[in-house]
Design a protein around this nucleic acid. Structure first.
Lengths: 343, 343
DNA sequence: TACTCCTACTAGAGCGCGCTAGTAGTGCGC
DNA sequence: GCGCACTACTAGCGCGCTCTAGTAGGAGTA
């Protein structure tokens, strides 16, 4: 007589109670023609009364298709939750269900993906996947797969990302115009978009005649990496090398780390140092002074990802595609002109 | 010949290729006794070769139980991702699968829960649910349900939370000891734990002889609420009423909002104003100066939630229980003594 | 030899649904 | 009176798996 003991009602229960066949109940619930208005209403009323709820496992098994999109994301990647928020409505609009699976410290991406496939997701949407290209290609061969943020060169995978180059260029032009010359870039390592961002940083420095100042510090897309880089720069300063006047971080989380390290050491942002992030994740607004960053439109990216997946599901001949969205520099409180005399 | 067109291999395929019966393959995959070592190896090898992957929909349908826990969370509640990270390993340890479903702006909690139930989750773990008690009770009657963070008075629901009272008391004692008297509390509205936190705030003020200073400002558990409260306090200051010397926010996100509003207006934290949050969400570390807050141990809470669910599933006679974990004040950079002469 | 007992395996029902093929019943034209 | 089209419904197979109730065959025992 407990919650778990009670049998969950099935279509047969509804059918019996409503005095019709199982098939008819099925028709009603699928909203298919073939039932009179009156019967329809009666069936729905009865179903509601006995608390019937269609069983997606059975439904899924019966029709070949599951109409379910599997989304893999990484816990703590704030930008991912922005994306998820955009995925649900678009999937619903197109009549698809969404299943979420998180990767984290103790749970590899492969494990998260495995769970999704086990639940018969027809397509995978991977948010900033960090796995090897070979693995992603294998997934792409097996299932419709969309990668958001990370380009997978020769894999059978759709790809949605923002034009990293344009974003970085905007940020760099902005900084240079303010008078910055010693602009350091913290690399995102294997993180999505990193290679492009790094390349564009180098190109921008060259274009502005700052070849001699180019400096890329290895890092990754996490706070810790920013903190470590901050410490490194501070240690160098103590040994006589001047601080850069601006830091272009690999993403917002990394920028956050730089801010933490610098502020703790008494370096004032943006007076002594400008810090620019990348993503415009939820996080960026939340700083008291606001993080200057490059905005990627999460809603639009989510929409594209879902659409790519669905279109390829419904039209299997389609080749994987790539969507490139234009990012936009958002100037907030962590950037300003360089300290006087630092040029 | 495309990813979505290919038929996914089934047990029958494995059985045929390995020259055994379907049942035997099933035995091997369930790791049950009844197959020789040699056959076991052969079956697994063949399965791997043809890329067989058990179908959880079918598996789920066939055995009565799904061994799946449904977790509802709210997008952007950073503390929830902390919890999720703790839920996975504990569930795995106990042999349960986890399904995630997110509520957000455009997706109600009921909808998120509906999706979970449709996928045959045996138990629900609701992270900081905001739904009406009546609805939660209804869920509790139907399914094993655990609420994390929010107490649901007379509902058939397990409950995991931290001892809000103790946490608030620690924070208040700390502030008073520093010399604060004008301590304002921003209420969490319908947010989980709010009622207890409000009550403890009042009690602490009384205990310290500060009855006359008691002030609870309505709010909720979001940045915006903190920003608005900040503006309110600033407007009052401009009309002659002094700022409080300390703010005890409803949670970290709200505290963040206060910081944003105050810093933008030139109020320096913690020199002019101390701000204390609640949750010790991921967020709190990420501020340059670190948010003083009350830590709830997310890992431990997650562990308890999973355990409650599983134990009640495997022992249907069990009554719903309550776990109260001790929170701990974490002093970081947003708190300090009140400005001189403000007493 | 005949019997039990054991291990290694198989047959086949059934989980809750979708869907195809079919059956009444009714109205309509000629 | 018959065929035909149309609506409202039903029978029953099959999705891929689990699980119960078996069977085949060999070892051990009296």
């Amino acid at each position: 007589m407990d919650g778990s003991g009670r049998q969950r009602p099935t279509m047969a229960d509804v059918a019996e109670k409503a005095g019709v066949s199982r098939a008819l109940v099925s028709i009603v619930f699928r909203n298919q023609p073939g039932a009179s208005e009156e019967t329809r209403r009666r069936v729905l009323r009865v179903a509601d009364e006995i608390g019937y709820r269609p069983d997606s496992a059975a439904r899924l098994l019966a029709r070949g298709r599951s109409r379910t999109l599997g989304v893999m994301f990484t816990v703590h990647q704030t930008f991912h939750t922005d994306l998820i928020e955009g995925i649900y409505p678009e999937a619903e609009r197109l009549g698809y269900d969404v299943l979420l699976s998180a990767a984290s410290q103790g749970r590899s991406e492969a494990k998260a993906v495995e769970a999704l496939l086990g639940h018969r997701c027809e397509a995978l949407i991977l948010l900033g996947p960090d796995a090897e290209p070979a693995y992603l290609d294998e997934l792409g061969q097996r299932t419709v797969t969309v990668s958001v943020g990370r380009r997978v060169p020769r894999a059978r995978v759709d790809f949605v990302h923002s034009a990293e180059g344009k974003g970085v260029r905007q940020a760099m032009d902005y900084l240079v115009e303010l008078g910055h010359r010693r602009i350091v870039h913290i690399d995102g390592g294997r993180g999505p978009g990193s290679a492009d961002r790094r390349r564009s940083y180098r190109a921008a420095m060259r274009r502005h005649g700052l070849d001699a100042e180019v400096r890329v510090i290895p890092g990754e897309h996490a706070e810790q990496s920013g903190i470590e880089t901050g410490r490194l720069l501070l240690a160098e300063r103590d040994r006589g090398r001047p601080l850069p006047t601006a830091v272009l971080a690999g993403n917002d989380r990394c920028a956050m780390g730089v801010l933490i390290a610098m502020t703790r050491a008494g370096v004032e942002v943006p007076r002594d140092l400008s810090v620019v992030g990348y993503d415009d994740s939820h996080l960026s607004h939340l700083m008291p002074i606001g993080l200057t960053t490059v905005r990627q439109d999460a809603g639009l990216m989510a929409e594209h990802a879902v659409r790519f997946a669905v279109e390829r599901l419904e039209n299997p001949g389609l080749e994987p595609r790539e969507a490139v969205l234009d990012p936009k520099l958002v100037v907030r409180g962590t950037s300003g002109p360089p300290p006087v005399g630092a040029a």
